[in-house]
Design a protein around this nucleic acid. Structure first.
Length: 620
RNA sequence: GCCUCGGUAGCUCAGUUGGUCAGAGCACUACCUUGGUAAGGUAGGGGUCGCGUGUUCAACUCACGCCCGAGGCUCCA
């Protein structure tokens, strides 16, 4: 079937003469329809076998186009001249009538021009780029669309909640009074959250706080550059990830290449799931023919290691950990957003091989609890729900196990069932947290995968001395979006402040005049190089005290210490605390105790900037 | 990728219905101020008005194309 769509100011037509022996009866004579999408259509011989599939695809196509051009009225206009191989008139009439009937059930208003008549007509086409489109509708198209649907979306069949009591409730049965936070999460999971329509605050903050900005001069869209303060935050989070994945969960650190090829069938299979999201890399020398791709995740290298390894059931379970300083996904132009959706991003990933489903479940639970939930507390968020995206049959088979989860995690499980999953992950958990403004966010994920080992031919030797496919857990956290979330959460407070351990400057020392710079230096050395280590710097610029206090506050410095004659005489420190905005005199020992508590054993790194502010350039 | 809005100094922005319109504040530099917890004063340097093409005697201003950012779709291993 061929169609030509015209977005029109108006169309007028009037049947004049019979074109076939038994044309349709005419109900109305001349008609005029304004502001409409005219669909000139010709049904072809090859369509006769698949009438209903053609109708289905026709309406999808027409609805798509109508939506794009924002047309509310459709005029179905038989126009056999688009093809040289027309179908029988009865087939054509059937398809048009069916399309009319089905389109009428949508919000579109449909008019069908009479079939089998020569008509005079007048039309005024709008002439914008989308106003004229021709489409070929065929059974292959139908098949392709269906395939895309399976791969692209996988329609959700059901959403329900397993409450901490163990009861299973549909979304409507969850009371807002009792579980207000769960209601928020459910809404978001269903995509019902009201869009704010504003720029997210982290966009401005990431620049003004000298954390990161878009690199538009020498790179592609969606590539960030991190400034020293931002890089420090990245490194601290990286240390935390290592603590969690290596020390806490026993993952073994690895590092694999950033460019990968499609040569291996496993890699090829994986890449072909999202071919449009790959960055291609071409070697500079022409004689090198091989094409590479920037890795969309570290899975390729990690799976390759697993494929080469000799693995006994006695080794299982075990995990390989990689901090991905760089991974790339060529996201669509309109999808890019600040630090949330970028093309070059950082992730921390753990891939765990498990012998069987029971072992996988035990690991799954351990990782969700000790990583996916726990890490939110460590970065200052409140985790409120575990969201399980699961293949329907898999859930039914292991329902008992999943219901147990509410006891293990002590939070509700929101279950979304799919007849077909979007990817090769069969059960996919995201943990959702709320920030200070009760906005939901998800940065951690644990996914159970039974398919990848088969495609990559990754096996282990079992007790029976036979090869078995393991189950792989993919566990990860997106670093950039975590930082964005931390920034937004920080900004939502009255006195915006980063968690103490992530504050680039933890203590700012302000000498009252240049006479006291030396003493300030001594204090800075003491704080930076002795227990409890903190990042302290000195504002030695010849500005008035008020001014330097102002700037320290604008930088969200948690503690400001002034040094002058008074302090030296009394042997105390004047400490201004950002959270309270109050100044208190205290002994150095007392201050250090406060700092130690603030640090709370979280990762620490030295100041990545000159200690003297007079030596620092302004990056923004 | 589609629709909408935007891009003028390092930053935040004003402005030009095509021609004395290259502007402000902050930042930066110099000098004065030696100060006590959120902005001390004076002077100065700095811009191919995102990029390209076209229309015009004349384009920062108009048209078209492209790049970049945001909002809304679509989407998100």
């Amino acid at each position: 079937m061929k169609i030509l769509t015209l977005h029109c100011d108006y169309i007028r037509f009037k049947p004049v003469k019979k074109a076939i022996s038994k044309p349709e009866e005419i109900k109305k004579g001349a008609r005029e329809i304004k502001e409409c999408l005219v669909v000139l259509s010709a049904v072809e011989k090859k369509d006769e076998k698949y009438k209903d599939a053609i109708v289905k695809n026709l309406i999808t196509e027409v609805r798509d186009i109508a939506k794009q051009v924002k047309a509310k009225k459709i005029v179905l206009y038989p126009y056999v001249h688009l093809t040289s191989e027309p179908s029988s008139p009865s087939t054509a009439l059937y398809i048009l009538k069916q399309a009319e009937k089905k389109l009428s059930k949508t919000k579109l208003k449909v008019v069908r021009a009479p079939f089998g008549w020569y008509k005079e007509f007048e039309i005024k086409c709008k002439g914008h780029p989308l106003s004229e489109l021709s489409r070929e509708i065929s059974i292959e198209e139908v098949a392709k669309k269906e395939k895309e649907e399976i791969k692209g979306e996988g329609k959700m069949k059901e959403l329900f909640v397993i409450l901490p009591t163990g009861e299973i409730k549909k979304k409507k049965q969850v009371s807002k009074k009792e579980y207000p936070e769960i209601k928020i999460v459910i809404k978001d999971e269903l995509g019902e959250r009201k869009k704010e329509g504003k720029e997210p605050p982290h966009l401005r903050l990431m620049r003004t706080m000298e954390i990161a900005s878009h690199e538009t001069r020498v790179s592609d869209a969606g590539n960030l550059r991190y400034l020293p303060k931002g890089k420090l935050i990245v490194d601290l989070i990286k240390d935390l990830c290592r603590e969690v994945f290596v020390v806490r969960l026993g993952g073994m650190p690895t590092k694999t290449p950033c460019i990968v090829s499609k040569e291996d069938p496993g890699a090829k299979w994986m890449m072909e799931q999202f071919p449009e999201r790959l960055y291609k890399v071409l070697p500079g020398r022409a004689e090198k023919r091989q094409e590479f791709y920037l890795r969309p995740a570290c899975d390729y290298g990690t799976l390759s290691i697993l494929k080469d390894a000799s693995i006994s059931y006695k080794n299982l379970p075990f995990g390989l950990y990689e901090f991905e300083n760089d991974s790339w996904r060529y996201e669509q132009r309109g999808e890019l957003l600040g630090m949330y959706r970028i093309r070059n991003f950082m992730m921390a990933d753990l891939h765990t091989m498990c012998a069987d489903i029971n072992q996988a479940f035990r690991e799954y639970e351990k990782q969700i609890k000790q990583f996916a939930i726990q890490i939110y507390y460590e970065i200052g968020f409140k985790p409120v729900a575990v969201v399980l995206n699961c293949k329907e049959d898999f859930f039914k088979k292991y329902k008992k196990q999943f219901v147990e989860w509410v006891k293990i995690f002590k939070m509700p499980i929101i279950v979304k069932l799919f007849s077909v999953m979007k990817t090769y992950k069969i059960a996919w958990v995201d943990v959702v947290a709320l920030d200070n403004l009760k906005r939901s966010m998800e940065v951690t994920t644990v996914q159970l995968d039974t398919e990848t080992p088969k495609h990559w031919d990754i096996t282990y030797t079992g007790k029976d001395n036979k090869k078995h496919y393991p189950i792989i857990l993919h566990t990860g956290i997106g670093i950039d979006r975590t930082i964005a979330a931390i920034l937004e959460n920080a900004a939502s407070q009255k006195n915006p402040i980063l968690p103490f351990w992530l504050s680039p400057t933890q203590v700012r020392i302000v000498p009252i005049s240049e006479k006291f710079i030396e003493q300030a230096q001594d204090l800075a050395v003491e704080l930076n190089e002795e227990e409890p280590f903190v990042r302290a710097d000195i504002d030695d610029r010849p500005l008035h005290v008020e001014r330097r206090i102002l700037e320290a506050e604008q930088e969200w410095v948690p503690y400001i210490v002034c040094i002058g004659k008074r302090e030296l005489d009394k042997q105390v420190l004047s400490v201004r605390t950002r959270i309270t905005g109050k100044v208190k005199e205290m002994k150095a020992k007392e201050f250090k105790k406060i700092l130690q508590e603030g640090q709370g054993g979280m990762p620490w790194k030295p100041l990545p900037l000159p200690k003297l502010l007079s030596k620092r350039p302004k990056f923004v």
